[in-house]
Design a protein around this nucleic acid. Structure first.
Length: 135
DNA sequence: GCCAACGTTGGC
DNA sequence: GCCAACGTTGGC
């Protein structure tokens, strides 16, 4: 059973378009222990939603874990690592934060409850609902 | 541009 | 080891 995740990115820093162009990219720069622990728990083949924070505030694509947790060379302290994420597909119609907040069955999503966490687990039921909303 | 939430730092 | 001060994230 693959697990599901959500990866948050500020499009000015790293956008979905950039990730699509790259195909597979390192998810570096995470400096939060909760987010780090989620990445440690990831297995190859796990899927994730790619969420744009900031002006966009919507889920725009689906990615897959292509490489499990390994050290992040951009972290000089050596405490943090990263995973590699491969593009699966772009959502036909992005699912906005407003739509997610308006859906009662998604009221427990970490995205709603803990807005600042950049890497989050997603429940299988939540995953299904969000992707159904994306058509 | 503001501010709430929350993580981190540093003084004691 | 506690906690106040501070910085950052991210929604509004």
């Amino acid at each position: 059973m693959p697990a599901y995740w959500l990866f948050k990115s500020e499009p000015n820093t790293w956008s979905w378009d950039q990730h699509v162009a790259a195909g597979t990219a390192e998810w570096d720069g995470v400096r939060n222990h909760q987010a780090k622990n989620h990445m440690i728990a990831m297995k190859r083949g796990d899927q994730g939603m790619f969420y744009h924070s900031g002006k966009d505030k919507q889920v725009v694509g689906v990615v897959r874990v292509a490489k499990t947790y390994y050290p992040d060379p951009t972290d000089k302290t050596g405490k943090f690592g990263m995973v590699d994420l491969e593009v699966v597909r772009t959502l036909k119609s992005p699912v906005t934060l407003a739509q997610i907040k308006a859906e009662p069955r998604l009221s427990d999503m970490v995205l709603v409850r803990n807005t600042r966490l950049s890497v989050q687990p997603v429940e299988p039921a939540e995953w299904k609902i969000v992707l159904a909303m994306a058509k």
